[in-house]
Design a protein around this nucleic acid. Structure first.
Lengths: 189, 189
DNA sequence: TTGATTTCTTAACCCAAGTCAATGAAAAGG
DNA sequence: CCTTTTCATTGACTTGGGTTAAGAAATCAA
């Protein structure tokens, strides 16, 4: 299960046996049931996550309504504002499926950076990548209609459409489930 | 003018005289006229920017229509997808006003990291901060109506409303200038 | 398997943003 | 200074997503 992490990291640098051991030692692997909450609104995040198996999603509760902002599946780090700002989180992180997740903390990360200093450069690159992705995600929202966003999702992440209920997809697209139904109807014609 | 950089960096670490010199030496300061284009669609970014004076904005051209995705003013690094991905840019970076900008490149950054290794940790933090901000910006788009987004802009960045033409603000909010006019009319009542 | 619950679809109606067009105000440029 | 262009506002009309409500389909638990 660990090898999912190395799979991810190998895009950024080559890792020796010894370094792998160090990384494994600093990363606690945890299992969570579907519905488990990794981070609550108001809570200050002390952990960061990397999804090995399953799917985690982030959402705000606005007037009792769920507003989904992201899905995180296999081989993805879970970006987490509260973890970097150390301020109370404004959103939830919850398991959408049974999950296996690598969990780290500020202390364990620092320890790991001391033992494997090359990871410092790599983590800069990982962050720069994440930032670029997040920016592209935002830009798509400004540029595209809900319909176009749905089509992009179909094209770029068909897997998500199969494993995630439509009302959450709708929320993620910034619309209501009824509207997504209509869009889907429009598109099959 | 340089001190704007140190002002920014001092949020992340304390800098010695010697380190300041190194940083100054690796950062070329350039002036640009209003309308100057720092990066064009299709071009691969070889430089990254930090705004010392003036305002830079990023926009896509979609069917000849400008779609603004960001404004960057004094003391702000200009995030730039193409610079990190090394792929052709899909958007433009342009000076909205006469600008003074610190310009760096991959080579000069690497050189700087060798001379002032502490900047490596700092740059991780800067990037994490940028990522958090970008995520909050995205989340606001999912959570809030155009009207609410405008009100937030009034509250959080009144300066932008004064220095930027309304049709660009409208684009940045994801709506048409006519709609922003109507929103403003609704709100004064 | 069945009944309960959740999710998805459809329809009718409403409303805010888009579109198109005209007008006025403000800036820019000579 | 006047002219030209750009920008902001307004009005009439269209459109696509929101709202509400109902029923169908899928999922889950007993």
């Amino acid at each position: 299960m660990d090898n999912v992490i190395f799979d991810f990291l190998s895009d950024y640098l080559e890792i020796s046996e010894e370094e792998m051991e160090n990384i494994s030692r600093q990363n606690v692997i945890k299992s969570f049931k579907k519905g488990a909450i990794l981070l609550s609104e108001g809570e200050i995040a002390s952990e960061c996550y990397f999804v090995l198996k399953g799917c985690v999603y982030s959402y705000y509760l606005v007037d009792g309504e769920v507003k989904v902002t992201g899905f995180y599946t296999e081989k993805q780090p879970v970006t987490n504002v509260s973890y970097s700002t150390k301020k109370p989180s404004e959103y939830y992180l919850e398991c959408l499926e049974d999950c296996i997740v690598a969990v780290s903390t500020a202390e364990r990360s620092a320890e790991l950076m001391r033992k494997v200093p090359r990871l410092l450069t790599a983590s800069t690159t990982v962050l720069a990548d994440q930032l670029a992705n997040q920016q592209i995600k935002y830009d798509d929202f400004i540029k595209l209609s809900p319909e176009k966003r749905y089509q992009n999702l179909q094209k770029n992440s068909p897997d998500l459409l199969n494993r995630i209920p439509q009302y959450l997809i709708a929320s993620y697209l910034g619309i209501k489930p009824e509207s997504l139904s209509r869009i889907r109807k429009r598109l099959v014609k």
